[in-house]
Simulated scan of single mutants.
Amino acid sequence: MTTVSIIGSGKMAGAIAEVASRAGFGIQIIKRSATSASAARPGLEYGVMGDELTGDLVVLAVPSGAYAGIAELYRDQLAARVVVDISNPIDFSTYDELTSPPDSSTAAELAAMLPPGSAVVKAFNVNLGDTLTSGTNGTTPTTVLYAGDYADAKTAVAALIEAAGMRAVDVGPLTRARELEAMGFLQIILAALGKTRYESGLALLP
């Protein structure tokens, strides 16, 4: 059985855990500490930062500012794994801009932090948590856009998405993560301004 380690315990961690549960994957939640609150499903395998990762896929459901510390702590364990970056690097003090370099992305920065053998895939950042939890966007299955440089890694992420009943769309190499982050930024801003709801999202029709 394929397994997923989710680092983080907030709303998006809970949403990814729901996706993995629908897909029939084993789930490990890594929290910052044993007392950290968790939005994930009850009855899952839990650990704390520093515990061994058990997942074939590792999803970073934490702010991108935490990536350097995670990359250092888990450097050896991430060397042979698919690492999924779901972040949207927004300046939440102003809601006015992305904080990643204009010619890069958090996914590219993460890839540079990790050892050879790691494969970073950008995914789920264009989706608000509610549409992942429900698996639907209005009356259509939720579409998850993803990008990466390694075919096997992207196949593994697409398998998770599709097994959970959603539509997986490969948008290209990891350089496309910049555009995905801009799309995620726009969705969050629209929801924050009340122009859309947090239960809504962009739908890519066939």
Rank of each mutant, 00 (worst) to 15 (best):
S134Q: 05
S134K: 09
T136C: 12
T136Q: 14
T136H: 12
N137S: 15
N137H: 03
G138M: 12
G138L: 06
T139I: 07
T140H: 13
T140S: 11
T140A: 14
T140F: 10
T140K: 13
P141Y: 03
P141T: 10
P141I: 07
T142Q: 02
T142S: 12
T143R: 04
T143G: 00
V144S: 04
V144G: 02
V144Q: 01
L145T: 01
Y146I: 02
A147T: 08
A147R: 06
A147I: 09
A147H: 05
G148K: 05
G148L: 10
D149A: 01
D149K: 03
D149N: 15
Y150M: 10
D152W: 10
D152N: 11
D152Y: 06
D152F: 09
K154D: 08
T155C: 13
T155H: 13
T155P: 09
T155M: 13
A156T: 06
V157W: 05
V157K: 08
V157R: 08
A158M: 07
A159F: 00
I161D: 04
I161Q: 03
E162P: 02
A163F: 00
A163D: 14
A163R: 15
A163K: 13
A163S: 13
A163P: 00
A163T: 08
A164Q: 04
A164R: 09
G165S: 07
G165Q: 06
M166F: 00
M166K: 01
M166H: 00
R167Y: 07
A168R: 04
A168V: 03
A168S: 14
A168D: 10
A168L: 03
A168T: 08
V169G: 05
V169C: 11
V169N: 08
V169L: 14
D170R: 06
V171Q: 03
V171S: 10
G172Q: 11
P173Q: 09
L174A: 12
L174S: 04
T175D: 15
T175P: 07
T175R: 13
R176L: 15
R176I: 13
R176D: 13
R176N: 12
R176K: 15
